[in-house]
Each structure stands twice: as C-alpha cells, then as structure tokens.
C-alpha cells in the first residue's frame, strides 16, 4: 500500500537540541487528497513542511514521494519529483512582474532556465502558459505589474500561481489565507477548491472556515506529535482536540 501514497513520512524526527519539532511523525497523503494539518502555534506544522520539502534535514526517519525515498535529496531534486509548496509569509520576486514570477517557475520545470543565449521573452510557450495560469486565478489583469505593487491578498494568489507553475503532484500550502483580510479569504478558498483534483493537497491552516470547507481529512499536530487524524466531523467531535486546540473556536 505504501507505493500508492503521494507523500508519506515514516517515524520522521527532527530536533534542535532538546526541542523536538517533529516527534516520530507517521503521515500519509493519498493521491488527490484534500488534507489539512492543523495544530496550535508552535506545534511544528511549518517545520513539517520544511522537513518534507528539504529546507530542513530530518534527524531520523524517512520521507517518501510516490513511494520513492527522498529523505537525502536536495530541495531542487524533490521539486523535480513533483513536490511544490507555498510559504506562510510570501516568498516572491517582489521587484519582478507577476508574469515573470510564474515564468521563472515554469522555465525551471521545463528545464530551460539554465540556457544563457536564448532570450527568455522568446519562449512563447512558457510565457503563454504562465499567462493562462494567471488568467485561471483571476490575476491576469495585473500580469505586468511588479508583485510589490499588488494588494497582499492578490500576492497570496501569485504565491499559489508560482507553485502551480511547477505542475506539482503534491502541493503543500502553508497557511494560504494568512494575512489576507477576511473579505478576500473567499477568493483564496475558491482558487483552492478549483485546483486540479489529481493534485494531492496538504493545507496547513489556522482559518477553520477554510479547513472545514476544503479538507476531507484532518491531522492534528501538537508539540511535534500527531495527536489524532480523521474526517472533519471526527476531528470536530474529538474531545482531545477540543481541549488542546479548538477550544472556544468551535461555535456551539
């Protein structure tokens, strides 16, 4: 059954000295999943994303992408195997145009980004694909504007667009709605709902509205340990979860 997982971690551990940010995490993300990872601040959610993507090296344990061990591979090599992510705080090329942000990602995916004689603008297929992607996300009208000139909510969409430019099989969204005014959260949710259903999606999120709208499976992480995993209904009803995390957030 292992091979059928889009992403899997086995007894994944990471500690900084005495602080364990990942404590024997066993996690499975199925193809086409809509999975949320929730937990209180400092639970190790972003560390988990950093471990999976290779920003951090794990202390022990295994990470498998599509059944293949990628634990010792670099970030770039994992991306080449279909793993993409977004960041909790925008990591964009702020001085470059929106179109160029996405073009850079597509060029890397297509393996043309190392070419130093052909003008980037002449790669029509790449630019057209980037534009079409922006169009799909509803930000094509700002394609030529520098990212830093955009409202934060729209920058969040560029953040997602760059990741989608990699045509990922596994997409990790680290708090896609963080910092977005609540009036614009709806747009983000719609974009996520319209994603290609074959992408295995893992969302880390604090916004419970978003989690319960999108996720069909939820994992709760507390102090680097998986507390419980289940369907949204199960999670909402779980007394442990209510105690350590949801608390007053769940409306009566």
């Amino acid at each position: 059954m292992t091979a059928s997982c889009a992403l899997e971690t086995k007894v994944l551990c990471k500690s900084f000295g005495a602080l364990a940010v990942a404590n024997a995490i066993n996690f499975q993300l199925l193809p086409g999943a809509r999975h949320a990872l929730i937990g209180p601040n400092g639970a190790g959610k972003t560390s988990f994303v950093n471990l999976v993507t290779g920003v951090l090296q794990s202390t022990s344990g295994q990470i498998l992408l599509d059944g293949e061990d990628v634990t010792r591979l670099s970030q770039a090599q994992r991306v080449k195997r279909g793993l993409a992510r977004t960041f909790q705080i925008n990591q964009l090329f702020r001085g470059l145009s929106v179109l160029e942000n996405v073009t850079l990602a597509i060029s890397e995916r297509e393996g043309v980004a190392g070419n130093f004689w052909r003008p980037a603008g002449k790669r029509t297929a790449v630019v057209e694909e980037a534009y079409a992607l922006l169009d799909k996300l509803g930000i094509a009208d700002e394609a030529l504007r520098a990212v830093r000139e955009l409202a934060y909510g729209r920058q969040r969409l560029v953040e997602i667009a760059v990741a989608l430019g990699l045509k990922p099989k596994v997409l990790l969204l680290d708090e896609p709605a963080a910092g977005v005014p609540s009036s614009e959260t709806g747009t983000i949710i719609e974009v996520i709902e319209r994603l290609d259903p074959t992408i295995a999606l893992l969302i880390i999120e604090h916004d419970m509205e978003l989690v319960f709208r999108i996720a069909r499976r939820i994992t709760v992480l507390v102090q680097g340990t998986v507390l419980v995993e289940g369907t949204p209904a199960e999670i909402a009803a779980d007394p442990h979860v209510r105690e350590v995390y949801l608390g007053e957030r769940v409306t009566p």
Partner: peptide, 29 residues
C-alpha cells in the same frame, strides 16, 4: 546582454530577489 535577457539571466535575478523561493521552485541555486 545576451546573458541577462536569457532564461539563465532571469533566474539570476530571481536568486537576487528571493533565494528561498528559487530553492522552492527547484533551481540549482
């Protein structure tokens, strides 16, 4: 001039603007 307008040259600008993101899109930085 050829280099800075090429895909390679643009990727350098990307590295200058945001290394973390370049790593995340699979660039051998």
């Amino acid at each position: 001039r050829t280099i800075v307008h090429s895909s390679f040259g643009r990727s350098l600008t990307g590295i200058r603007e945001n290394v973390a993101r370049m790593n995340a899109i699979g660039t051998p930085v």
